[in-house]
Design a protein around this nucleic acid. Structure first.
Length: 216
DNA sequence: ATCCCGAGGG
DNA sequence: CCCTCTGGAT
């Protein structure tokens, strides 16, 4: 994608959504971290449904360790991969107590050392909790980057580096959420709704059926 | 490359 | 039935 088109691409997403935010619910940095860990290969709506009751009782790593593995599993049973996630959340909470004074570190390398926290999760926490200019490449952003031509790459890391290289300063902080929300509601994996996409003319992807279904 | 793994939509 | 959802560890 040409530089001028990249700027126009972001400019329109920014105009349509001036203050984008995560749709994951949380009450502090710690619960945000837990919510992001739980959101792997799961919808944020599904995560919110489970964490609403959980975070009302448990909003610190100390309380999570006290809750225990089996009780945590009971809370998040409806989320995919819950067995692994429950173990990671308990271990991660203990690590925060042991090595970070019970607080979420504002450091990407420290975050990545926590159980269940990889580069993508660390980038999300850095962006949301600390307003860092990180590009967390999830399933949506990987798809949009390659589909539109904004940031192509064979791996998520390659797409992340392309985004870092092509995204102008004014858009860097919010780029993550603009792309996520665009992918979730318009540029969907199965049926991208190009007929109502505000950046369709800048996009490399040209659908065979650019018009909406007749009944819709 | 493979495993983990439930809910929601088509 | 199938695919997708803000992945990480081995």
């Amino acid at each position: 994608m040409r530089k001028a088109d990249v700027v126009e691409f972001y400019r329109r997403l920014a105009e349509a959504n001036p203050h984008p935010e995560t749709e994951l619910e949380s009450v502090n940095d710690y619960t945000l971290l837990v919510a992001v860990v739980l959101s792997a290969q799961a919808t944020d709506a599904g995560v919110n449904k489970a964490t609403r009751a959980l975070f009302a009782e448990v909003d610190t790593p100390q309380k999570m360790v006290a809750l225990g593995l089996e009780e945590l599993k009971r809370h998040i049973r409806t989320i995919g991969l819950f067995n692994t996630k429950a173990k990671n959340v308990i271990a991660l909470s203990q690590a925060l107590i042991d090595h970070h004074g019970g607080h979420v570190p504002a450091d990407r390398d420290a975050l990545e050392k926590l159980p269940g926290v990889g580069r993508k999760t660390a980038n999300v926490v850095m962006n949301v909790a600390f307003s860092a200019e990180t590009f967390a490449v999830d399933t949506h952003i990987f798809r949009i980057g390659n589909r539109t031509g904004l940031a192509k790459g064979r791996t998520v890391l390659a797409v992340e580096k392309r985004l870092d290289a092509v995204t102008p300063a004014p858009f860097r902080v919010h780029a993550h959420h603009w792309l996520i929300l665009h992918g979730r509601y318009v540029c969907k994996a199965r049926k991208p709704e190009c007929w109502r996409c505000i950046v369709a003319d800048l996009c490399a992807f040209k659908p065979k059926t650019p018009l909406p279904p007749a009944k819709a």
